[in-house]
Simulated scan of single mutants.
Amino acid sequence: MEFRQFFNFLVILKESIKLLAKNIKLTLFITTLTLLSSSIFFVVFDFSSLSLARDMLAKESLFPISSSSSAEFTTHLSRIQHSFPCLLAVYVVFVLSYLIITLTSTTAIIIVSSDSYNNKNSSLTELSSRIAKSWMRPLVTGFYTTIFVTGYVFLAISLAAPFLASSSMDMLGAAVLFWAGAYGLYLYLCSVWILSLVVSVVDEDGSCGVEALGRSAVVMKGQRVSGFFVNVLCSVVSLGVYLGSRMTRGERVCGLVLVNGSCLVKILTFVAYTVLYCRGKGSRGQEIELNSSDVEYAKLGLITPLDSNVV
């Protein structure tokens, strides 16, 4: 069974590479635009945040030579308090901008991959229209998946607390084994969470949130090990990107390598999960429809029928 799942993973990887080359123009356009916009925002953020941080440090360095009761001290303190909201605003703008870039590129690459898998061709205008119509659904689903990921991380930290509290080598070794097992379990569980984003984009019923998570769990039946292998591969590639970035000279160059490498890994991940969705939807389409009918039937069952004797 495990060998079969590993063989399915190799098939998924092969089909993913074919999809990347199938609609090469749109794929290159999305990839180039994603890398370019991410690099520009990173450089702007790095420059602006460093300038504000250096300005705050320069003002703070004047404190030791100023008396805490002097007017000069109060002036320096008010300047720092005025600079801090600007620095915070830069961070907020960067996070929101990166979120928009990530959401748009993720939606675009999923749509293009799904169309390529089904032998459909979409123009740039059609792609833009579909992104505008469906971007809200992966945003809602991403909110739910973030809650699951955050809850899992806090659970793992709370369970690992007894290991981290001890200084003995045996307990530290047990902590390493625990974290390795917890990360492996995370790679196994998050296959459903990642696939739910694909479901939110390409599902014909427009499901999102909890409904998308439920549909992705159905699609992933029999494919979770394949999804686990995909996550392991992407984690290894991400580790290679990180180690490669540490070999570069300069913090800004290192950051650019990390940002662009992460974007490429994300694109590969969602292309592979789009293949997983299309393969699972093809084999379990009827089961998904039955589950949807059960949900609607359950909702109807909550309605109490009217008594025929009541006038």
Rank of each mutant, 00 (worst) to 15 (best):
A161N: 06
N23C: 10
I147N: 03
S191D: 07
N291K: 07
N23M: 10
N121H: 10
F73A: 14
M136C: 05
V140W: 07
S308G: 08
S207L: 02
A217N: 07
K133S: 13
L268W: 07
L19V: 12
D115T: 06
A132S: 15
G227T: 03
V241Y: 09
F148W: 10
L290R: 10
S308W: 07
A21L: 09
T141A: 02
S49A: 15
L276I: 14
L20N: 06
P305C: 08
S37K: 11
A58Y: 14
M171K: 12
M171E: 14
I267H: 04
F47C: 08
V311G: 08
T248H: 02
N23Q: 15
Y152G: 02
F228G: 02
H76L: 14
L243F: 12
S83K: 05
I157G: 01
S226C: 10
F84V: 11
N291A: 13
F3A: 12
Q5P: 05
G280Y: 05
Q223I: 00
L239W: 09
S69G: 15
G206C: 08
T102Y: 11
G214L: 11
K133C: 01
Y297N: 11
V199N: 00
T74Q: 13
L256I: 12
Q81C: 03
S283E: 12
G280R: 06
Q223V: 00
P305F: 06
G301R: 11
G142V: 03
L300N: 14
F29Q: 09
G206D: 04
V95K: 09
I24P: 06
S226E: 09
V295E: 04
G209T: 02
L159C: 12
Y186P: 01
E60S: 14
A272N: 04
D170A: 12
L28F: 08
K221H: 06
S105V: 07
F228W: 07
W135S: 10
V295G: 01
A272I: 01
A161L: 13
F94S: 12
L19Q: 06
M247L: 15
F84D: 05
T125V: 11
I288Y: 05
V202G: 02
G301P: 03
L50D: 15
L164Q: 10
P138D: 06
A165K: 14
L87Q: 10
T27Y: 13
S166H: 12
L243C: 06
V265F: 08
A165L: 15
V95H: 09
A108G: 02
L256T: 04
L264H: 06
L233A: 12
R252T: 15
T102N: 12
T146M: 09
E296C: 05
Y186T: 04
S116W: 05
I110D: 00
V275M: 08
G209P: 04
R249C: 07
A212E: 00
A71N: 10
T106G: 09
N291T: 04
S48E: 09
V176R: 07
S245D: 04
I40S: 07
L164Y: 12
V153A: 11
L103D: 04
A298G: 07
E296R: 12
F270A: 03
F63D: 04
S105P: 05
V201R: 01
N309H: 13
T32Y: 08
S128P: 09
A165V: 03
K25E: 12
L185Q: 08
Q5T: 10
T31L: 13
G151K: 03
T150I: 14
G184T: 08
S308A: 14
